Amino acid sequence: MKTHSQTPRKPPIVIGDTDYRRLNKLALAAADRLPEISDALLLELERARVASDSSVPEKVVRMGSAVEYKTDAGAQRIVTLVFPEDADISEGKISILTPSALPFSACPRVKQWAGPRETTASTSSRCWQ
């Protein structure tokens, strides 16, 4: 008997129209320099539901959100997701074009944690706007 393994579905994405426009422009501009990251970002944007900035749920990670996560080695980190021009690793600000940052852009799989505007991307990550 043949068994089929199911590929987990990606969670839905909700994005504000301002971030959508800026990220789309950024991904297109980065296509020649960073084709894999550009393609991944464009694919995520393509499947996103674009909403007015004011109607994006607070639990959704957006640009400028702080995200706490656990590395594969078990170390905890807190980073803020920013556009490339605002990136500063010494301040914990990572560019959306950093390969490790892209998964945080799809954080609408989050559920509300205790405290205002605090969310989680998985059992090992927390995200704040």
Rank of each mutant, 00 (worst) to 15 (best):
T80A: 10
V14Q: 14
D19Q: 07
P12V: 07
E36M: 11
V79E: 08
E118S: 11
E91A: 10
R22W: 04
T18K: 11
K59M: 11
R49V: 10
T71Y: 05
T80C: 09
D32S: 13
L43W: 09
S105G: 12
S90Y: 08
S124M: 08
A66K: 10
I37F: 04
G16M: 04
R47L: 07
K93S: 01
S122T: 09
K93D: 01
I96F: 06
K111D: 04
A29C: 00
P12R: 12
D32F: 09
D88S: 02
K111G: 00
R77F: 14
A75C: 00
K2S: 13
D86F: 10
G115Q: 02
Q112E: 12
E85F: 07
F104H: 12
P11N: 08
A66T: 11
L97G: 02
V56H: 00
S105D: 00
D88G: 00
P8N: 04
E68F: 05
R49K: 15
C127I: 12
V67E: 03
D39C: 02
L45Q: 04
R49T: 15
T7L: 11
R126N: 08
P35D: 03
A31S: 13
W113A: 08
A48G: 02
D53I: 02
L28N: 13
S38Y: 05
E91Q: 14
Q6K: 12
A27D: 05
I78D: 02
I13G: 03
S125V: 09
Y20K: 03
S90E: 14
T3P: 01
D86S: 11
G16S: 06
R77Q: 13
A106C: 06
E91T: 04
M63I: 15
D86L: 10
C107P: 00
F83Y: 15
V67Q: 04
I78T: 15
V61S: 06
V56M: 01
L26F: 05
P103V: 02
Q76S: 09
I89A: 10
L102H: 03
T98N: 15
D86Y: 11
S54H: 12
A31C: 03
L34E: 15
I37Y: 06
G74S: 05
P57M: 03
H4V: 10
T7M: 08
K2F: 12
T71L: 07
M63R: 08
F83I: 10
P99Y: 04
R49M: 09
G92E: 10
V60C: 13
L81Y: 01
D53S: 08
T119V: 13
A101M: 06
H4P: 00
L34K: 14
S54R: 13
D72T: 00
K59Y: 14
V67T: 07
S125G: 06
